[in-house]
Simulated assay, not measured.
Amino acid sequence: MVQTRQVTLLGYWLTIIVAMALKIIPWSTPVLYLTPDWVLLVLIYWAFATPETTSVGKAWFVGLLVDVLTGQLLGQYALAYTVSIYLSVKQHKRIRQFPIIQQSLFVCLILLVAHILVFWVERINDQAVPLQSWLPVLTDGIVWPLVLLVIRKIRFFS
Score class of each variant (00 low, 15 high):
Gly11Asp: 00
Pro36Gln: 06
Val56Glu: 07
Pro26Glu: 02
Trp120Asp: 03
Val89Met: 13
Ile100Met: 15
Lys93Arg: 15
Ala19Arg: 04
Pro26Lys: 02
Val56Ser: 08
Tyr86Met: 13
Ile24Lys: 02
Ile116Ala: 09
Val18Phe: 08
Ile44Asp: 00
Ala47His: 03
Pro51His: 06
Val83His: 08
Gly71Phe: 03
Val7Lys: 15
Asp37Glu: 10
Thr35Trp: 00
Leu73Gln: 07
His92Arg: 14
Leu74Pro: 06
Thr15Gln: 08
Arg94Gln: 15
Val18His: 03
Arg123Met: 05
Cys108Met: 15
Ala114Met: 02
Ile17Thr: 14
Pro99Met: 10
Lys23Gln: 13
Ile124Lys: 07
Val89Gln: 08
Arg96Gln: 15
Pro26Leu: 01
Pro36Thr: 03
Ala80Met: 08
Ile116Lys: 04
Leu32Gln: 13
Phe119Glu: 03
Ser55Asn: 11
Phe106Asp: 00
Val62His: 02
Thr29Asn: 09
Ile16Asn: 04
Val107Ile: 15
Lys58Asp: 02
Val18Gln: 02
Val7Leu: 15
Leu65His: 10
Arg94Ser: 14
Gly71Ile: 04
Phe119Leu: 10
Phe48Cys: 03
Thr50Ser: 10
Pro51Val: 02
Ile101Gln: 10
His92Asp: 06
Lys90Trp: 07
Asp67Phe: 12
Asp37Asn: 13
Thr8Tyr: 10
Val107His: 11
Val66Glu: 08
Leu69Gly: 12
Tyr33Met: 07
Val83Asp: 05
Lys58Gln: 10
Gln127Cys: 01
Ser28Glu: 12
Lys93Gly: 14
Glu122Phe: 00
Ala47Asp: 01
Arg5Met: 09
Arg5Tyr: 08
His92Cys: 14
Leu69Ile: 09
Gly63His: 06
Tyr45Cys: 04
Leu10Tyr: 13
Leu65Glu: 06
Trp60Pro: 02
Gln3Ile: 13
Ile100Glu: 12
Ala114Gln: 02
Ala21His: 01
Ser104Pro: 08
Leu9Cys: 10
Ala47Gln: 02
Phe48Trp: 11
Ile25Pro: 04
Gly11Lys: 05
Thr54His: 02
Phe98Lys: 15
Ile100His: 12
Pro36Met: 03
Leu74Asp: 06
Ala49Pro: 00
Leu40Phe: 01
Val39Asp: 00
Gln102Val: 06
Val62Ala: 07
Ser104Ile: 03
Pro36Asn: 07
Gly71Thr: 09
Thr29Arg: 11
Leu41Gln: 05
Leu65Val: 13
Trp60Ile: 08
Gln127Trp: 02
Val118Met: 00
Ala21Glu: 03
Asn125Gln: 11
Asp67Val: 13
Leu41Arg: 08
Pro51Asn: 07
Pro36Ser: 06
Val113Asp: 01
Leu112Ser: 11
Gly57Ser: 12
Gly57Trp: 10
Leu34Cys: 07
